[in-house]
Computed example of a mutant assay.
Amino acid sequence: MILSFHIEYRTSWGEEVRVLGSILELGNNQPGKAIPLQTVDGIHWTLDADIQAPKNGIVQYSYHIYRDGKDTRTEWNSLPHTLYVSADKKKVYRLQDCWKNLPEQQYFYTSAFTESLLAHPERNTAPKSHKKGLLIKAYAPCIDNDHCLGICGNQKVLGDWD
Rank of each mutant, 00 (worst) to 15 (best):
Y93M: 06
L158Y: 06
S4M: 03
I35Q: 08
H130P: 00
W161P: 15
G150V: 11
A126V: 12
H81S: 03
P80N: 12
C98I: 05
A53T: 12
K128G: 07
Y9E: 08
N28G: 14
D50L: 11
L134D: 01
I35K: 03
K33D: 11
R94Y: 10
Q52K: 14
E8F: 05
R73I: 03
N56M: 03
I2D: 09
D97C: 07
K33G: 04
G57W: 03
P31T: 12
H81Y: 07
G57A: 10
F113E: 07
I35W: 00
N145A: 07
Q96L: 10
L24P: 01
N101G: 11
T46E: 12
S62M: 05
Y61D: 03
R10V: 10
K55L: 13
M1C: 09
Q60A: 05
A126L: 11
K132H: 14
K156A: 15
Q106R: 04
A34L: 02
A138H: 04
E8N: 14
S22A: 07
I58K: 12
I43S: 07
R123A: 11
Q30K: 14
H6S: 13
I43E: 05
P103T: 13
D162Y: 13
L37I: 06
I35E: 09
H147E: 15
K156T: 10
P121R: 00
V40F: 09
R73H: 06
E8H: 08
R73K: 14
D50F: 08
G159M: 06
L79C: 06
R67N: 08
V59L: 03
K100C: 06
L79V: 13
W76Y: 15
L47T: 05
I23C: 04
P127M: 02
L149Y: 02
I7F: 03
G21K: 09
A138E: 12
G42T: 08
S62A: 05
Y109R: 06
S111E: 08
Q96E: 13
V40R: 10
Y139L: 13
A140R: 02
E75Y: 00
K90I: 02
C98P: 08
K91C: 01
G27N: 05
Y93H: 07
K132I: 09
D162W: 11
P54V: 04
A138V: 15
G42F: 12
I51K: 01
K100T: 13
R10I: 09
R73G: 01
I65S: 04
H64V: 03
